[in-house]
């Protein structure tokens, strides 16, 4: 099997098992929806406030729900020692990382595709900029979050309090990503032009590149027997 075939097989395995249980997707969806509703109560929903906090709400909802998914990601592999089976399947641990990352990405993209319209509807927000660019920023921001998140999820799952540990070790590292994602989407939402958010775009791309390649290279060390 080629490299990409092997990754594809792993992604397919994750998708199949998720389609049978739907536990990860449904909990992420409900949680992001709930976060949105809570924000509606936390901030007085008049148009002025919403305009200013809307990009922040999007990313808080996405990243909190994302943490839920990431926590499950390797916990499922731990039961029946599935992770050992995965490691025996391939000598290159980078494949496991990429496979897990891609399946996590697919789940969170599905969640975001459903949550985003709900957010716009509930807050009655009018988009001024280009929807295409907003989607691009969301895709890139989520990518970086999941890339480093999958790696740290594999690390945290081996500790005794994994589900509490993951958010604590993940959020400090993704702060630059969150700043860039919130600023870029804020600028696009209010109709800003490319020069206004080009720097943020560069940070997003840079972060994604660094934190896809570094975990991919280091996954061999993480999954040692």
């Amino acid at each position: 099997m080629t490299y990409f075939n092997q990754i594809g097989t792993l992604v397919w395995k994750d998708l199949t098992s998720e389609l049978r249980t739907k536990e990860m997707l449904s909990s992420m969806l409900i949680f992001s929806f709930l976060t949105t509703v809570v924000f509606n109560f936390a901030f007085d929903p008049d148009t002025e406030t919403i305009k200013r906090v809307f990009p922040g709400i999007i990313w808080v909802a996405f990243s909190f729900a994302g943490i839920l998914g990431l926590n499950r990601s390797f916990l499922n592999e731990k039961s029946n020692d599935c992770i050992m089976g995965l490691m025996l399947c391939t000598p290159d641990k980078g494949i496991i990382y990429l496979g897990k990352m891609l399946s996590n990405l697919i789940f969170i993209y599905i969640m975001e595709a459903i949550t985003l319209p709900i957010l716009f509807v509930l807050f009655d927000y009018r988009l001024k900029g280009s929807l295409l660019f907003l989607l691009l920023v969301i895709i890139l921001g989520t990518w970086g979050f999941i890339a480093i998140g999958t790696f740290l999820s594999a690390l945290a799952v081996n500790t005794k309090n994994s589900e509490i540990l993951l958010p604590i070790i993940l959020f400090p590292l993704v702060i630059p990503l969150l700043i860039a994602a919130v600023q870029a989407s804020g600028s696009i939402l209010s109709g800003g032009s490319w020069p206004e958010w080009s720097n943020w775009f560069k940070i997003l791309v840079g972060f994604d590149a660094i934190f896809t390649v570094v975990p991919w290279l280091m996954f061999d060390y993480l999954l040692e027997v």
């Binding site: 480093i148 790696f151 690390l155 500790t159 400090p172 590292l173 934190f211 280091m218 060390y221 993480l222």
Partner: peptide, 11 residues
């Protein structure tokens, strides 16, 4: 030792 070394590098 291994995990903290990895996190020290990534951090």
């Amino acid at each position: 030792a291994r995990f903290s070394a990895i996190f020290g590098i990534v951090g």
